[in-house]
Design a protein around this nucleic acid. Structure first.
Lengths: 155, 155
DNA sequence: AGTTTTAATGATAATGATTCTCTTTATCGT
DNA sequence: ACGATAAAGAGAATCATTATCATTAAAACT
């Protein structure tokens, strides 16, 4: 569980949360897993496929195998260190999960494929309505499809 | 393009829209495609996988192949007769698309897996905010994860 | 420290959904 | 009816993900 913080370009506040999560799990931080975690931290804000992660991870640990990457991503997602979601194209993508709020709002550009985070949250209103109908909502996921400012200008 | 309406348990108003869409496309309504369409209409409100559709379609047309089902679903989705989306599990699901409004709001029960439609729409507020930032939004997709009233009661 | 138990890795095979290929069959316009 | 074109069906190919299994590394326990 010992990690050299200097290796990562991350704000302290978020750092803690990630390692708190790991500490609180019965999760063993092996060198390979640490490398995968580094990759995810360094690519905060991006949405990486398992293959993407493998490419990056191999730069740090050339022998790491794809199975280990999948297993690690799965594990990290299970303790909410990562958020795993399926974007169009039939492949999962992973991103560093910031904090505990389950807000996964994205806008996906249909032209260049860029994925941007959307902060605002007024879905609690809708969630309340659902809960009045007897549902219990534990998470949500919102995707907008359209064109990012750059692509929108071109058209 | 001739279809015997009596075969389908659908309200007239929606019927028209579906066939308008087909008429306006250069889409040929072969017997197999008609069968797939029937299946989708009969299962309005449900979210079927390609395999589900194949099972149902074979009851009407025993020799229909999975490739044809995929091709047809794809075609129908491309003219907005169907809505195609990926729910967890890594497989696409298809549902009849009602009207032209692109509203795809679902609540997925983490216990029984049931998928319920959510009508309400206050996302236009968010979309407006995005458009002020230079994005152009053409569609959105909202998924809630939680427990349906039935499963919620049990817990 | 040495041994045993347990968990993790890496390579590869297996799976499963979807897409592609190709030959045959049906449909359309003339 | 005829030739051109599109669609169907069967099965192979693909691609992401998962499972298997032998090997290695890391705890746990003397």
């Amino acid at each position: 569980m010992l990690i050299d913080d200097n290796q990562y370009q991350v704000r302290r506040g978020q750092m803690k949360t990630v390692y708190q999560k790991i500490d609180q799990s019965e999760y063993r931080l092996t060198p390979q897993r640490s490398v995968v975690l580094q990759v995810m931290i360094e690519n905060q804000g991006h949405h990486l496929s398992a293959e993407d992660v493998l490419q990056e991870a191999r730069k740090k640990s050339p022998n790491i195998g794809i199975a280990t990457v999948y297993r690690t991503l799965e594990k990290l997602a299970s303790i909410n260190v990562l958020y795993k979601t399926m974007f169009e194209g039939g492949r999962y993508r992973y991103e560093l999960s910031i904090g505990d709020e389950h807000q996964h709002h994205h806008i996906i550009c249909l032209s260049c494929g860029s994925i941007t985070e959307v902060e605002d949250d007024l879905l609690h209103i809708l969630e309340n309505k659902l809960e009045k109908k007897g549902f219990r909502v534990v998470d949500h996921e919102l995707k907008f499809y359209g064109y990012c400012p750059k692509c929108n200008k071109k058209a």
